[in-house]
Amino acid sequence: MHIPDAVLDPRVAALTGVMGAAGLFYGLKSVEGRLKERTTSLMGMMSAFIFAAQMVNFPVGPGVSGHLLGGVLVAVMLGPWAGAVVIAAVLIVQCFLFGDGGLTALGANFVNMGLIGSVVGYAIYAPIRRWIGGHRGILIAAMIAAWFTVLLAAGACAAELSAAGSHRDFFRILSWMALVHAVIGLGEAIITGLVVRFILLTRPELIEQDPTWGLESPVPGSGPPRRWLATILGGLGVALAVVVFLSPLASELPDGLEFVGQRIGFLADESPSSPIPAPMPDYQLPLPSLEHVKAATAVAGLVGTLVVFAVSWGLARVFSGAGHRSERASADAA
C-alpha cells in the first residue's frame, strides 16, 4: 500500500502532506505529554518491533505471502496516537533507507496507514471492546478493527490516486484496491487476532489493565464526551468501510442517469459519434470486466466480514468459561 513518488497529483500530495504533518505533530505532543522521557525508548522499540514484524511472511498460498501492517496492534497495546507515531517512524525509515514509499507521498502514506490504520482503527476498537467486554471483547474488537482499517485505508488510497480524475476512475481504482485489500485485510485481522490472543494468554495485564497501557490516565470530567466521540468515529469508520465495498455497485447510478438523460434527450450532445467507426466496437480484452470486479468486490467484502466475525468468535472461545477450562485441561495434559 506504499504509494511511490510521482503517482499522486501534486496538489493531493501537498494536501495529504499537510494533513499528515498536523496529525503527526498532534500525536507526538499527545504521546510525549503522557510518556514524558520514556517516549523515545518505548516508541523507538515499538517502531523497531513493527519494522521487524513486517519482515515475517505468512504463507497465504503457493508462492504468495502476506505480512502484518500493525497499526491496530500497536493501538491496542499503547493507544491510538502512540500507534500513529510508531507507524510514522516505520514509514520514515522505509522511505529514507529503503526507497519504499515516495518522499512526496509520505503524507498520504501516513494518513492511510497511520491516521486511519491506528487512530480510526482504535475508534472502531474501543466501542466494540466496551460493548462485548472482557478478553473476548478485546480480541474480537481488535480483529474487526484490523479488518475495517485495511479496507478504509484502501478506500483512502483509491481516493488519493484518482483525485485528479473523474468519479468513474475513482470507482474503477476502488474496485481493484478493495478486492485486493479484502484478502490483505483478512490476513491482517487474523494475524492481529492471533498475536493479541497470545498476549492475552501470556501477559494479559499488558492489555487489560487499561486499553492504553497507562498512557491515557483517566482525567476526571473528560471521560463521557470522549467515549461518545470514539463511538461516533467508530460507527462512521464502519459505515465508510461498508460504503467502500458497496459503492462500486452504486457507481451504476451515474451510468443509469446518463442512460435516462439520453433517453429524454438532454444529454444527446454528450456522446459525439466519431466520424470513423471504431475498428472493433465490441472487442474486449479477455480480462475480467469491471462489472465482474465490482460484483466480486462486494461479495469479497460481505464474505470477508462474516469470516472475520466467525474466526474472531472462534479464537475468543478460549476466554469464555468453558473454553478457559478446556484450554487449562489441555495445558495440564501436555
Binding site: G44, M45, S47, A48, V90
Partner: peptide, 12 residues
C-alpha cells in the same frame, strides 16, 4: 522527540 525516536529505532 521524533528524531530521537528514529535514532533509537534504527539501533534496535
Amino acid at each position: 522527540v521524533l528524531v530521537a525516536t528514529l535514532q533509537f529505532m534504527e539501533r534496535y
